[in-house]
């Protein structure tokens, strides 16, 4: 990048080529996650979809959100939030799993009437 030195003194300028590369990868992965729904992988389908989403999310966070070049502290801040969410969802799922035996088949709470 010949224009690199024109940028700010205190922040990193992401090269266009990197941005376009990530953009291409995100487009490809979106089409892939769409296409993979036509393949029956059984219970694996959701994990494949989530895995692809995780890769896409990581690309966005690392490059578009500059985490790759910024102070690692921001990445720690984000990861701590994600960790909290995962613990939250994990424990909630464990808890509701305990009630599986009490569930009435085909019935779910939540109706107002």
């Amino acid at each position: 990048m010949s224009k690199h030195h024109e940028g700010p003194t205190y922040a990193h300028v992401v090269p266009v080529r990197t941005l376009l590369g990530v953009f291409g990868a995100l487009m490809f992965l979106t089409i892939l996650t769409y296409a993979v729904t036509y393949v029956d992988l059984g219970a694996l389908n959701i994990w494949v979809a989530l895995g692809i989403a995780l890769v896409k999310g990581t690309l966005v966070a690392l490059v578009f959100m500059h985490l790759l070049w910024d102070k690692k502290f921001y990445a720690v801040v984000l990861m701590s939030a994600l960790l909290c969410v995962m613990i939250f969802i994990g424990i909630a799922l464990l808890d509701s799993g305990q009630y599986q035996a009490d569930l009435i088949p085909d019935f779910a709470p939540g109706i107002v009437q």
């Binding site: 996650t33 769409y34 992988l41 959701i46 989403a53």
Partner: peptide, 12 residues
């Protein structure tokens, strides 16, 4: 949205 899309639309 990257997470919402597969979770809501692409359920197998």
């Amino acid at each position: 949205w990257i997470f919402l899309f597969p979770l809501l639309y692409l359920i197998h």
